[in-house]
């Protein structure tokens, strides 16, 4: 790269850190990651436009038809009550994706901030903060969620928050461990001696360096949250019929697997494709955010 070109580059890179900009450049070169991102965006668009895209209503039953294999009218077949599977899959996707992303975002936000603060300040602050995490860990969280549901009533938004509120614990522990090691590195001391404020040190020097494990853990959290929702719904604590989610569709599909395999296959495929896309994107992001892995 010639000097002039570099300098031209720099002039648009003045806004904030160039890490994110460089990461975006690197991510775009990673075909798998771009593919994953594309698939996820497609899923999200489909979820947003579901009311217009869905060929039927999600509660529309056709008891005479019953469970029918894929056909021209019902592309993915129907379930035992004669409801169109494609429609239910689309509506289920809305819930599953929303739970997956919102709950994980909640976990990410709380976990990273909490872990960084605990790890950075250390000492007594750390001890108190981490003991709190230990206590919450020890709490049987089924009871915690049932309590929430009982107190606040059944509410999808609350479900997101409740799951997120449980999942952040592990994230906080991971981030705290990372920050503890990072804090002893000289570049953090250098930042202190430059007179940077604590918040600048945390946001510019510590958090970006914890991103590797955080991203990996995030891509693992999203699917586990989706399955967790199915589990709660199964117990009657989450989504109620006739509403549905991928997790629920799969668990019903398992029951009738032998007679009506398509009821398991299609929801299963939807979930698997999402997870694949997530993993590719996650791997790509992790590499893109680490300047050391770039080969150009």
């Amino acid at each position: 790269m010639s000097t002039d070109a570099t300098l031209a580059n720099i002039t648009d890179a003045e806004q904030g850190s160039s890490l994110w900009k460089d990461a975006w450049h690197r991510l775009r070169k990673n075909k798998m990651a771009v593919g994953g991102l594309f698939v996820l965006m497609l899923m999200c668009i489909a979820a947003l436009l579901t009311p217009w895209l869905a060929p039927y209503s999600y509660e529309e039953q056709n008891l005479i038809l019953g469970a029918a294999p894929p056909s021209a009218q019902h592309w993915l077949g129907t379930d035992t009550l004669g409801r169109d599977l494609l429609t239910r899959l689309l509506y289920g996707g809305r819930i599953s994706l929303a739970v997956g992303f919102i709950a994980t975002a909640v976990a990410l936000l709380i976990g990273v901030l909490y872990g960084t603060v605990a790890g950075y300040f250390g000492g007594r602050i750390d001890a108190v903060m981490m003991r709190l995490v230990d206590i919450l860990y020890a709490l049987p969280f089924m009871i915690f969620i049932i309590l929430l549901m009982v107190i606040f009533g059944r509410n999808i938004l609350l479900l997101f928050l409740a799951i997120g509120a449980v999942e952040w614990l592990t994230m906080a522990r991971i981030v705290r461990g990372q920050v503890q090691t990072l804090r002893q590195q000289e570049f953090v001391e250098a930042a202190v001696s430059l007179g940077l404020s604590q918040w600048t040190i945390i946001s510019r020097h510590l958090i970006p360096n914890t991103l590797g494990p955080v991203i990996v853990y995030t891509t693992l959290t999203i699917p586990s949250v989706m399955l967790f929702e199915a589990f709660l719904s199964f117990l009657g604590l989450g989504i109620q019929p006739p509403q549905s989610s991928w997790g629920l569709l799969i668990s019903y599909g398992v029951e009738t697997m032998e007679e009506y395999p398509w009821l398991l296959i299609f929801p299963g495929l939807a979930l698997s494709i999402t997870l694949f896309a997530l993993n590719f994107l996650g791997d790509g992001l992790r590499d893109a955010l680490d300047p050391r892995t770039s080969k150009d």
Partner: peptide, 22 residues
């Protein structure tokens, strides 16, 4: 802080790996 600065021993540890020279 602005008036007093420090140069550290290990140039591998004293630079944030995720910050470019700029």
């Amino acid at each position: 802080r602005r008036r007093m600065q420090m140069i550290f021993q290990d140039p591998y540890a004293s630079l944030n790996p995720r910050m470019s020279v700029f």
